[in-house]
Design a protein around this nucleic acid. Structure first.
Length: 627
DNA sequence: CTAGGGTTAG
């Protein structure tokens, strides 16, 4: 108990309380106080009204007994809204009750809403100072307040207190304690509490699994679920939702189907939560048809249902489809929330739907939504990917809270627009704002260096990755370096660089080297690299095409033809090419081999025309080369 | 007077 009193946070709160105690409004409460119009408090709506009643009670009929006084104070506190923390704490400080129930009610009230959780801790402190011993009801409220505030520090002290009074065995206490650690990201601690006492129920399992899933250990969470089954416990809807979201993260379709069977076999009610979790799970596991089936079968849908569909489609690369779902949602008059907008912007970004993206931007402005955080980042990315780099810069500049995502979106965007110098400038801003770049940021930085041919600068950033930022370079970073070296003509150095890689080079790394061979006409080396690439990813066509270009540029037509023939013989699956363009607000999507566009004929006639004219130019260019 | 649920960007 004493350790709690030393908490600086609570001390700060008490200082706040004493500050309010000396403010004029509180001098309205002189002793002895009065008690009469308590009934009027029940209908009291505002803090002003409350204080008025308080004052009139004091003036007319003060409470006669200690009990009446305490009752008055307790009622006053319970009638305070979240913003009245100052007033509440001043009354609280005079609440000299020894009744646990009075404190429990007070703490419960404060812990119930976000804005007043701090007051719950203050009330707890007053309780302890008044020598009142917390019971099994008090602690869940206090722990809940800590969890809401993400105050693990205070939570740990309360935990110590819980252990001291042997309260861990109470399931409610134990489960709220687990929840505290779960929301604060400490799976290890959740597990410890879980293992700490033998009694556990569905809530304990739900919290444990939630803790795993939320901290990226979905596999462990699912394992725990099966372990639970061995104890002959059956999941309910709330637990199922958590398990389904874990499966969604794993992206394992087989597991997903197994979980769906579990839902059916156990006759779980597919309410809007379970339905949403199912839709999300099937989307993330790639079973679009079944996701649609669940979606259509749901009789109650909400914005989350639509969001799951939109975000899921965007993630599957079905951007056009995602946007059409958004339009359907709008036709039904459903209001999108910020998560909808992020999904829509993501789809715009990846399908080039600048007009719709601008519309979303206007929607955001019109509705007074702050273009910050997630939304701001999605806007920056959308503008950058749709070619409006200046708009991306504008949104970025207007953002108040910038994080690593904001910077990365812009840096990657600038690099893609050939503005390497600007990209590096923006990158240089990050340390000043104390924002730590991550792996993706460095992909942007290194691409910028590669496009601008900045060999030394690229090398320096690459070294900084591990030396300064403690990041382990991924294959794509090595790929960028190979690209930088290759473009500078240092092909042997690039090859040596690959040999020295501490991780296994992947197709992108070898691909970058092959690209370099192609630029510099290295036929022999190219052939060798091609063999490497075939080893790693047989059946892909990209490397063959690159190599056949190398042969062609070296005028080794026979070799080029041989290679093309071997591609045909192997029936190589071609990477599905896809591109899209927006015209008057409609996105037109083109896929390799897809003839479904209404103007397919005309488009191809035009393409033939362009190809024909290009051939003439090419011919001229090639002739020049021969001279 | 007590605890556990779904969707989010580079």
């Amino acid at each position: 108990m004493p350790s709690l009193l030393s908490l600086s946070k609570i001390h700060k709160a008490m200082n706040l309380a004493s500050l309010y105690l000396s403010s004029p409004i509180n001098q309205l409460a002189p002793e002895p106080v009065e008690f009469a119009a308590l009934t009027r408090l029940v209908s009291c709506k505002s803090i002003a009204q409350l204080k008025q009643i308080h004052a009139s009670i004091i003036k007319t009929k003060p409470p006669q007994t200690q009990e009446q006084k305490q009752l008055l104070y307790a009622k006053l506190i319970l009638h305070c809204s979240d913003d009245d923390a100052g007033y509440a704490s001043s009354v609280l400080a005079r609440l000299d009750s020894s009744d646990v129930f009075v404190y429990n009610e007070t703490i419960r009230k404060f812990a119930r809403s976000q804005g007043s959780c701090f007051m719950a801790l203050v009330a707890f402190k007053v309780m302890l100072e008044n020598g009142v011993v917390p019971d099994r009801y008090t602690l869940p409220f206090v722990l809940k307040a800590c969890a809401e505030m993400r105050e693990v520090g205070v939570g740990r002290v309360v935990h110590g207190f819980v252990v001291k009074c042997g309260m861990v065995v109470n399931l409610y206490v134990k489960n709220t304690l687990m929840r505290l650690y779960a929301v604060c990201g400490g799976v290890g601690d959740v597990q410890k509490v879980f293992d700490g006492s033998p009694e556990r129920d569905l809530v304990s399992w739900t919290t444990l699994i939630q803790g795993c899933v939320k901290s990226g250990l979905a596999k462990e969470g699912i394992d725990a679920f099966f372990e639970m089954g061995e104890e002959n416990l059956r999941a309910d809807e709330k637990l199922m939702v958590v398990v389904l979201s874990g499966c969604a993260r794993l992206g394992d379709l087989q597991l997903a189907r197994r979980m769906y069977r579990y839902v059916c076999e156990n006759r779980l009610n597919v309410d809007v939560f379970v339905g949403n979790a199912l839709v999300d799970m099937y989307m993330k596991c790639g079973d679009l048809d079944f996701a649609w089936k669940v979606f259509n079968d749901m009789d109650e849908k909400n914005v989350v249902t639509w969001n799951a569909m939109i975000a899921g489609l965007a993630q599957l690369g079905e951007f056009k489809e995602a946007l059409s779902v958004f339009r359907r949602m709008q036709k039904l008059g459903l209001r999108p929330d910020d998560i909808t907008l992020v999904g829509v912007l993501n789809s715009c970004a990846n399908s080039g739907a600048l007009e719709l993206g601008k519309w979303v931007n206007a929607f955001i402005d019109k509705n007074g939504i702050l273009a910050d955080g997630y939304i701001g980042n999605a806007l920056v990315d959308m503008y950058a990917k749709c070619g409006s780099i200046d708009e991306a810069l504008r949104v970025f500049a207007s953002m108040k809270y910038k994080d690593v995502y904001s910077y990365t979106s812009l840096i990657v965007g600038l690099a893609a627009h050939g503005q390497a110098e600007k990209a590096l400038q923006v990158f240089a801003e990050m340390p000043k704002k104390v924002i730590k770049p991550d792996e993706v940021t460095f992909v942007g930085v290194l691409t910028a260096c590669s496009h601008a041919g900045l060999l030394q600068e690229g090398q320096k950033h690459f070294e900084d990755m591990s030396d300064v930022y403690n990041l382990s370079p991924l294959p794509e970073h090595y790929g960028c370096m190979v690209d930088i070296l290759g473009r500078s003509g240092l092909i042997d150095e690039a090859e040596e660089f690959i040999q020295k890689m501490p991780i296994e080079p992947d197709a992108f790394v070898w691909g970058a080297l092959l690209g370099a061979c192609s630029i510099h006409g290295r036929v022999v080396q190219g052939k060798w690299v091609l063999e490497k690439l075939i080893e790693i990813e047989p059946g892909k066509d990209g490397a063959y095409i690159l190599m056949s270009n190398i042969y062609s540029s070296a005028s080794r037509w026979k070799d080029a033809l041989k290679l093309r023939k071997s591609m045909k013989d192997q029936k190589l699956k071609k990477a599905p090419g896809c591109s899209s363009i927006e015209l008057d607000g409609t996105v037109h999507e083109f896929r390799k081999g897809d003839k479904s566009h209404p103007k397919f004929q005309q488009i191809h006639a035009m393409l033939d025309n362009i190809t024909f004219q290009l051939k003439n130019v090419e011919h001229a260019a090639n002739s020049c080369e021969l001279l």
